[in-house]
Design a protein around this nucleic acid. Structure first.
Lengths: 314, 314
DNA sequence: GTTCCGCATGAATCGATAG
DNA sequence: ACTATCGATTCATGCGGAA
């Protein structure tokens, strides 16, 4: 029988994903429960990241995906956040080609979640509107996989979330019970109980906001600020809740400044991160350390109500 | 010089799109300004429509697309509303393959709009959530094409958030007590405020609702009710406003019960529709006739405020 | 302690200009 | 002709200061 190494967790590697992942001593077979990543997009951010030419994108990604397949547990999931940019006025096709290629590699393309980003970059062009959504592609090795749907249930939504967004829940209940007798006090129960499953369009409304203690917020903020890719904490959080449980190992082979790992730590998952650029690597390390410190001190740094900030966000 | 026939407009054909479109006497080159359609999806709705096997979908669609290319004006647009269904637990790839194949045919893939359907079909599955979005693929023949962005501008910002922020508590209470008209007093001011360009996620909120006179509503309702593909009037309307102007010719080669044509008539565009099933063809004809009748009687049957309904919507 | 208004800014894109 | 750079365009959000 083959001897299987145990994977080192809660660790960051500064290096090339393709090479590091290929090292079975570092990354044993089937040692990862969930992969969540947002790789560098093709031909973008040349200055701050290593741009990959669109025509070579699939070829560049496939060897990495092959190792991801190897290291993922059979019932694990691989979430790929990506969106093709316009090139010469039309959308590039490399993401479509990548999906087809990954399937040939053995992956099942279970689902395409739509991440609807309401605050997309402004701008105006003669041929298109602002790009306000990205693909979150869900791949698995097996058609049977772990999915913890209850972990991402949301308040019933439309009503409360949309129309009374700016009010806290308590204010909301107070107003209702004061002014509208036919809804009465049950609203409180109703709000607590009435949680529903989300759908495959992911929108981070007020109810998804994570309110963190100051230190964590600062760490997260700085992770978002200096990395050119905005990957809000809420996004990996959602998938970590949905596709992993406590103590599972979460891998991000393009960690950036650490958002996926931070989300993992906050949810008591183990993380493994890889980042090529030393600058981001160092920052990720620093940010994660901050969050870990909090986690050892407090049981639950995730608040459901805003925490007064001491430190300016600047 | 080649003699060019003029296309007959405001007409429906009961027959096969591939064959009818190939008839250059009926459909001269470059005679159509905009194509909006939601073709039968692969392998679905077998009972009510002609299902196409997923593996044969691209091959089935390409000859049609070739004729669409021929009949479309050089500065026109082709909007394809489609979404692959899960098959054996994973998403099918035929839509991806179709995009790639259409590009080979000469089409430019300008954009993929995401139609976010908030009230998606209910259901619960172990491996996926409810499917709440569909692709609206935008193809053109040329990188220069007509786009009337001002025609689809929307009131600024996100509804509820801004609205309630600027309302006094009194307004808010009155608002609640009014209950189901979410429009309090101040909101009318608010609605008149600045309009902004939308983005590439299409959500039909309250402000997009089209309030129609009773007869039109009845026609539209019945068109939606009996056709198995739910294609709300708002969807073709949005694209018709965005990519065509008055008197342009709008084609839907899979007309169903007439929604695209109804939207065209309501906006004083000319329509051409093709529908294979006689049942839908007849219904479309009836529905469109109703709407046309209204249009000759009234200048603008599109109301911005609700019209009292005489007939229950069920 | 609140709410409100103003302002900076962010995974952008196109077209023109320059090399 | 082809690539590189720059300016113009645009809006949701969160923060800071004022009322």
């Amino acid at each position: 029988m083959m001897k299987r190494n145990k994977i080192n967790t809660n660790i960051l590697y500064n290096g090339d994903s393709a090479k590091l992942l290929a090292d079975a001593a570092l990354f044993p077979d089937k040692s990862i429960g969930l992969i969540v990543t947002s790789p560098p997009y093709a031909d973008k951010r040349k200055k701050s990241y290593d741009g990959v030419h669109p025509a070579k994108y699939v070829a560049w990604f496939l060897p990495i995906a092959k190792e991801l397949y190897r290291v993922l547990k059979d019932d694990g999931s691989f979430i790929l956040n990506i969106k093709e940019h316009p090139q010469n006025g039309e959308r590039g096709t490399y993401v479509l080609e990548l999906i087809l290629a990954l399937k040939k590699q053995g992956w099942f393309w279970i689902e395409e979640y739509c991440w609807y980003k309401k605050n997309s970059f402004p701008g105006k062009w003669p041929n298109r509107f602002r790009d306000s959504w990205e693909r979150c592609l869900h791949f698995t090795k097996d058609k049977e996989f772990k999915m913890y749907q209850d972990a991402v249930k949301v308040p019933i939504g439309d009503w409360a979330a949309k129309r009374f967004k700016s009010m806290s829940e308590n204010d909301f209940i107070r107003h209702i019970s004061k002014n509208n007798s036919h809804l009465g006090r049950n609203v409180s129960n109703w709000l607590d109980k009435k949680k529903v499953y989300p759908h495959n369009v992911i929108v981070f409304e007020e109810e998804h906001r994570l309110y963190l203690s100051n230190v964590v917020e600062t760490a997260v903020d700085s992770s978002n600020k200096n990395h050119s890719a905005i990957f809000p904490l809420e996004l990996p959080t959602w998938f970590i809740r949905l596709f992993s449980k406590k103590d599972d190992v979460v891998l991000d082979p393009f960690l950036g400044s650490g958002t996926t790992a931070i989300a993992a730590v906050l949810h008591k998952r183990k993380y493994v991160g890889i980042e090529l650029k030393e600058e981001y690597f160092k920052e990720a390390k620093k940010n994660i350390k901050e969050v870990q410190k909090i986690m050892t001190n407090s049981e639950s740094p995730i608040k459901k109500t805003p925490v007064k900030r001491k430190i300016s966000r600047k």
